[in-house]
Design a protein around this nucleic acid. Structure first.
Length: 343
DNA sequence: TACTATT
């Protein structure tokens, strides 16, 4: 049931209002006091659906369980890809009834919107349970997650907490943002999470910008280096670099399941993602670029990150772009290290 | 001005 990782992420939970009219049939949805359909026990939310699943496939999946009154497959507004949160309405459960295999959809209301928090700087040793314990003092947690490296399974120090109510999330930010968890050496950052569809749009626009810009600006001058003999840098194998940096007391964290992460320093305040695409793209497969910006000014803080799939191409990009003059600045480019630069 | 992280 799990999907392949993709740059196309699914949309934020979007719960339909479900059935609004009573069918009048013996098995129809129960009515609340005001006569409106009570779908609290018949409306389900289903996450992590395959992105290519169709409405028909989704319906037939649940149709084998019971009669479906209505169902909706929620798709990303921008990409049209599916994958999340179609409310399904089934006949009311018998009493007593077994617990549902998928959670009931919560009734849609303004008070539960924007209650999702993004947490970074978590100690790598902190478990999801421990994170929940930290946040549970501020309210009822609906969902939580800690992002992990897909290969090693180790925490990336980043997670999500969705509270039942927005005011609970606000209180958690006030209480925990910038605070050190018990025993932690670094403070955590707690903020409202981005809406996934926003990020999807940004990624698409970056890509679009990249491909469109290339089409009209013609070959970049780095492009020839893409075909340079790789044997020249073969002595810089990952193992060699690892052993060298271990001796130097610097940990490389450039390598991960997502590819090789490159640290780019001395970007101008006006730098944006497209400049990183243009600089690194000619050297090979670039899967991600990120310019780090100041929250208040939205200006680049002087550095960014580029992820490249292949080690040889990443090494060639670093060898070529470290010391490269961009405008009036000399770039410093290296594999990302785990901590601050050491001389 | 020196190391992110957005299910």
């Amino acid at each position: 049931f799990l999907t392949q990782p993709s740059i196309i992420s699914t949309m934020e939970t979007q719960v339909s209002n479900g059935p609004t009219s009573n069918s009048g049939l013996p098995n129809g949805p129960p009515l609340s006091a005001n006569g409106a359909a009570d779908d609290s026990k018949t409306n389900l939310i289903v996450n992590y659906l395959p992105q290519n699943m169709t409405q028909e496939e989704f319906k037939s999946l649940f149709g084998s369980i019971g009669e479906i009154e209505s169902c909706k497959l929620v798709r990303d507004k921008i990409t049209g890809t599916g994958g999340l949160a179609p409310p399904v309405s089934l006949e009311p459960p018998s009493d007593p009834s077994p617990p549902p295999k998928v959670p009931y959809a919560r009734p849609s209301s303004a008070s539960i919107r924007d209650a999702n928090l993004y947490v970074s700087g978590l100690p790598k040793s902190m478990s999801q349970k421990e994170m929940e314990q930290l946040f549970s003092q501020y309210g009822r947690i609906i969902t939580s997650r800690i992002l992990v490296d897909q290969v090693t399974g180790v925490s990336r120090g980043v997670g999500f907490i969705r509270f039942d109510k927005r005011i609970e999330a606000e209180e958690a930010i006030k209480g925990l943002n910038g605070q050190k968890p018990l025993g932690a050496s670094e403070p955590i950052t707690v903020k409202f999470a981005n809406n996934p569809s926003q990020k999807t749009g940004q990624a698409l626009l970056s890509h679009l910008y990249q491909t469109t810009a290339r089409r009209y600006t013609g070959p970049l001058h780095h492009q020839t280096q893409r075909f340079s003999p790789l044997s020249l840098i073969s002595r810089f194998s990952p193992i060699t670099i690892d052993s060298m940096t271990s001796l130097a007391g610097v940990n490389l964290t450039g390598a991960s399941s997502g590819g090789w992460c490159i640290f780019v320093y001395n970007l101008s305040p006006e730098a944006d993602e497209s400049v990183l695409w243009q600089l690194f793209g000619p050297f090979g497969a670039v899967t991600n670029v990120k310019v780090i910006r100041d929250f208040a000014t939205n200006k680049c803080k002087g550095f960014g990150f580029v992820t490249m799939t292949n080690y040889e191409e990443a090494a060639m990009a670093i060898a070529s772009l470290n010391g490269y003059r961009l405008g009036d600045r000399i770039l410093q480019v290296s594999f990302k290290t785990s901590k601050q630069h050491k001389a």
